[in-house]
Design a protein around this nucleic acid. Structure first.
Lengths: 352, 352
DNA sequence: CTGAAAGCGCTTACAG
DNA sequence: CTGAAAGCGCTTACAG
């Protein structure tokens, strides 16, 4: 060892793998093995190199590694979802896991129903070659996208919803939320309050979550001998406007519901508006239930009873699969949902 | 040219700069000049190479370019801001400009008041060496962060708010919103409606926007001979809770305001809650004004009159500065704001 | 206006 | 368990 670490540090230059190798008296290939946690390095050698790496503050250059690996040290987050808080939570969760790993998060919003949806994604994947991607609902259901990912051999984790205990086979690796669990709690809550004229505003039927949630609500209601009134069963598409329109129809009826369950918070906010315009008080005249625990939920007056998903955790788990585990077989990781009771739910008035 | 393009394409391999050079009968250096828009290439040569690039679908590898440039083809978005929609809009705006440029957007949320705020950022900047960063409010005010960016020589654009026509010197390159313009319109709107008992809930005074907005509201009010009542002037910090608490204080007074102007929508939503609890109707009993045009604004009942900023445009401009213009001198680009009148503002009841 | 050589900082494939 | 050579796909610095 002709040069000391102190002398090297005095130069004020960023350390490279060559510096570490020279200082440690080994080849850079051996340093590379330490960086990449190869098991075949003598423990003593590994410790020596690790210490030098720490002392000189060496951090391998992600560009150089990416070039040699033929794969960028980037994880892509692919989505077409209008719920800003959901997106931000997913980003935070992924970043929770990525921080310190030397891998960065690249965001890739896209437009599912655009002509160039697939070609744009192909461009991105072919030119950047990310180490992995996380695909969020609803485009996690796009078969062509999944095929593209398979064709380009991009490690991937999809996020979706499914009924708990459902025996359906996994599609690749996936993080699955059991939206039905919290919905069943919500159904039981509403029925337990004494409601029997219960309306429902459904989610977009193209998304699995719409069916999973509905099934959960029905299960909870049924446990208390209640059900969605067949004449109060309205379609919706998860948008504020669709919730508003559906609630207007429901609230104009002479035999209007005493409670309306909505498949998400956006539509529930639309129902607040309809109730406001019909001069109905919540929860005195009308109980309202949502799903998502969106920021709006506890900013509405009164705050909305809703169901929460561990969004951030889901993204953290997805990033973990990508970063620390090679894709072997199909695999499903499951998370629950939970009811959050707030001020929008109460007992129906006597006589209604 | 010993090999034809057709023959090359038949191989089904991704084209590299070497393939293009060979096919064009030039050195790869010349191809590199074309990629990087160097002016010193014969027009004929350039066109020939450009055509081959198109035909073989060559896209330079960002990893290789990054390594050679000693700068990743990545733009970082740095922020500590709880407003999810604002963040998502900024991401969309930056991506609007970046799409097709070969540069990706890396998101970097951080915690301003954490011990490791600066060291984490330094790690990120030193190891990734992004081509540029966009810094969002409020951390765009952090002098130490700006110094760090200067020290590491990272091209940067900060986003901030300033009163229109303010002669303050730019701090580096910045995108500045004139929050006061829309606020002045809002002040004039409220005063024009006939309000004279006007309350105010201010923003966090540590942020420039709090002062700029207040100044705008006051200007608009003054133009119609009105003003914020000195006894109805409440501090706030942009949070829902601070808006709720301040509005409660204001609405409990016997001589309560007929209108409350809030420095953002979050606080206005808190004021809705206070009004709801005090059994006051909006706008009949109380006019409410916000700022941001957050998603919540038109989901409240009635929808909130507020001021909108062209958030997405600002990010697009910031990305454009970074991508297409070398940082020469300090530079300020300015955008206006505008009033959006909705249902939460109306004339005060006679007698109040 | 164009090119040959060297280099960016890593890893792969092979050998021992 | 370790290393010498070649290579990943570009750009820089220099020369002409």
């Amino acid at each position: 060892m002709t040069e000391t670490i102190e002398a090297f540090l005095g130069r004020g230059r960023k350390a490279t793998i060559n510096d570490v190798a020279r200082l440690a008296g080994v080849s850079k290939k051996t340093v590379s093995r330490v960086i990449n946690n190869s098991p075949s390095v003598h423990a003593r050698t590994r410790d020596d190199i690790a210490e030098i790496i720490t002392r000189v503050g060496f951090r391998p250059d992600p560009q150089a590694r990416g070039l040699a690996f033929r794969r960028a040290l980037l994880i892509g987050l692919i989505y077409d979802n209008p719920n800003a808080q959901y997106i931000v939570n997913m980003q935070m969760g992924a970043l929770d896991r990525l921080r310190g790993s030397g891998i960065e998060l690249v965001v890739h919003p896209c437009t599912w129903h655009s002509e160039t949806f697939l070609s744009e994604l192909r461009d991105f994947l072919e030119s950047q070659r990310p180490s992995g991607v996380i695909v969020l609902p609803p485009i996690a259901e796009d078969r062509q996208l999944l095929d593209l990912l398979e064709e380009l051999n991009v490690p991937r984790v999809r996020v979706t919803a499914r009924t708990s205990g459902d025996g359906n086979a996994a599609i690749g690796r996936e993080i699955v939320s059991c939206d039905d669990i919290g919905c069943a709690e919500a159904g039981a809550h509403v029925a337990g309050l004494g409601h029997r004229r219960i309306g429902y505003i459904g989610g977009n039927p193209d998304y699995p979550s719409a069916h999973v949630r509905r099934h959960g609500f029905e299960t909870g209601l049924a446990a208390h001998g209640a059900a969605i009134a067949p004449d109060l069963d309205e379609p919706g598409n998860y948008s504020f406007e669709s919730g508003y329109a559906a609630a207007r129809r429901l609230l104009r009826r002479p035999d209007r519901p005493t409670a309306i369950i909505c498949a998400n918070d956006e539509m529930a906010a639309g129902a607040y508006k309809a109730a406001f315009e019909a001069d109905l008080r919540i929860p005195g005249d009308l109980t309202l239930i949502g799903f998502d625990d969106a920021p709006i939920a506890d900013r509405l007056s009164p705050p909305l009873t809703t169901v929460r998903l561990p969004t951030r955790d889901m993204a953290r788990m997805a990033a973990d699969l990508l970063v620390s585990r090679p894709a072997t077989a199909d695999q499903t990781m499951t998370v629950p949902s939970a009811l959050i009771v707030r001020g929008s739910s109460g007992a129906p008035k006597a006589g209604l």
